[in-house]
């Protein structure tokens, strides 16, 4: 945990400095307002900076042996999953909601559960048809149709 906390405080400090610099660029005062738009973000940045310095000091003083937090295979597995979701988000607009959902559910069920492909496919068809029927048809929600039209 020790190392991770240290890295985290570095990342957060960088973020807070960025926030503080950006908020200084905002107008400090606007006619008729008690407080300009940049005031609160500036102090938020300052607060995060202060806390991350405390975190860094804490973790440097921490005597416990560091615990490994991230391992490569975990990150790889998560990355594949996340990539699938990103592709899904893109494909929803491009190819339509129904077909993308079908593919996503197929992929997820297969990956999480390692079932036979036809089982995954059926679940995919059911989930996507039910959600399209429920939301697009019944509730008239404008879910994207894309080029496939489903």
């Amino acid at each position: 945990m020790k190392k991770i906390n240290l890295y985290m405080s570095i990342v957060l400090s960088a973020l807070s400095v960025f926030v503080m610099v950006e908020s200084k660029k905002m107008p400090a005062e606007i006619a008729g307002l008690g407080m300009g738009p940049g005031v609160l973000p500036f102090w938020l940045g300052a607060g995060i900076l202060l806390l991350s310095i405390i975190l860094a000091v804490e973790s440097l003083l921490d005597k416990r042996s560091p615990k490994k937090v991230f391992n490569i295979s975990e990150i790889k597995n998560m990355g594949i999953m996340f990539l699938a979701l990103v592709l899904y988000a893109i494909s929803v607009d491009l190819f339509g909601f129904g077909i993308s959902t079908l593919l996503l559910v197929f992929f997820l069920v297969r990956r999480l559960g390692k079932y036979a492909w036809w089982k995954c496919g059926t679940i995919g068809v059911i989930v996507s048809s039910v959600s399209v029927y429920l939301f697009r048809v019944l509730l008239e929600m404008p879910l994207p149709t894309g080029i496939v039209g489903f």
């Binding site: 959902t101 996503l104 559910v105 997820l108 069920v109 999480l112 559960g113 390692k114 079932y115 679940i123 989930v127 996507s128 959600s131």
Partner: peptide, 12 residues
Amino acid sequence: PYPIMAPMVLVF
């Protein structure tokens, strides 16, 4: 089973 439940919840 979780592998069926999770994707459904995720889609919704």
